[in-house]
Design a protein around this nucleic acid. Structure first.
Lengths: 168, 168
DNA sequence: CGGGAATAATTCAACCTTAAATCGTCTTTA
DNA sequence: TAAAGACGATTTAAGGTTGAATTATTCCCG
């Protein structure tokens, strides 16, 4: 919604940036989901497989934290992946509250051949911006994200400063 | 997911910008949804009411186009708003295929008192960026969105160049 | 040691989202 | 004018999302 609102200029500019950011995210998302359709993967499913590939087996709590999603949500996404045999749950031996999620061979095969074209698609789309523009965009979004979180909890949980929980 | 992937630099930068953009949108969305909770409005419901307030009664097709959502989605969101008595559907007289969605007095009251604090919250969060940064951000996102859409159909349907459908 | 607090996962209800199928209602055209 | 096609809205099935309640397990402390 193109914010037909007319207020003071500061507000107008902020609302315009806001709505544009959201529309871009939506369009990106739709486009990339289409690219995932051949593998019959939803974006969240792809995200979980990608994380498992690049950081290794994780408990669901950590998956939730990494993706900024609720626990119940991860349960469902992992359910659907497990139903297709792309992932398996392993009950913690030391601490039986945890279940660690592992890629199966089939899951690893699928994600290793799905990730590269996906990354290429992103790179291709972002190439409408120069290298510097991309860096500035990322920087601005990083600050925005922090501001939105109000700096409270996991603001930078995924910004590199990871303090991983001890999923056994 | 902080893209632990390590590829050529161009790809690394694009993926970083991508993931940062999405995390920012997610955080913004969560924060603003929290602000809407007192009014018991979801973000999509708020969006529809806001559009109806600022552009006037619209048929569902136009609402769908404005929000880049499917028709079925709008049917449900309007259902929920109508159930609460915030909007009402009016069957087209000339062409009975269309239903025009109107704000009820209650709906107008709710959205007129909900919008200003919402806009202020956005402005407040975006104030971590300078005026110029916000403008550059919007510009970059605009180009990104176009690139993602592949320039096809309603790429700029909401960028001002509105060609409204003739909902009677 | 034993009971209460904390914690990981699951379930549940409510809503959002889409694509595809269907229903009514025009419009076109043969 | 009647059949065919186009078009707006609704329904349906599948999945995503959340927050709250529940369950199972472990931890802590008196």
């Amino acid at each position: 919604m193109p914010t037909h609102h007319r207020g003071p200029e500061e507000e107008r500019i902020a609302l315009d940036a806001f709505i544009t950011l959201f529309r871009a995210a939506g369009s990106l998302n739709r486009r990339l989901s289409a690219g995932l359709a051949p593998a019959a993967l939803s974006a969240p499913q792809f995200g979980v497989l990608e994380t498992l590939l690049h950081v290794g087996p994780l408990c669901q709590k950590d998956l939730a934290r990494k993706h900024l999603r609720s626990g119940g949500n991860i349960t469902m996404v992992v359910d659907n992946l497990e139903r297709r045999g792309l992932v398996k749950r392993v009950r913690g031996e030391k601490d039986r509250r945890f279940t660690t999620v592992h890629l199966t061979p089939a899951g690893r095969r699928l994600i290793t051949r799905t990730f590269p074209p996906h990354a290429r698609a992103i790179t291709e789309i972002f190439s409408v911006l120069t290298r510097e523009e991309q860096i500035h965009l990322a920087h601005a979004c990083k600050r925005l994200g922090m501001a939105a979180l109000g700096r409270s909890d996991e603001a930078r949980a995924e910004d590199g400063t990871r303090q991983n929980s001890p999923c056994p």
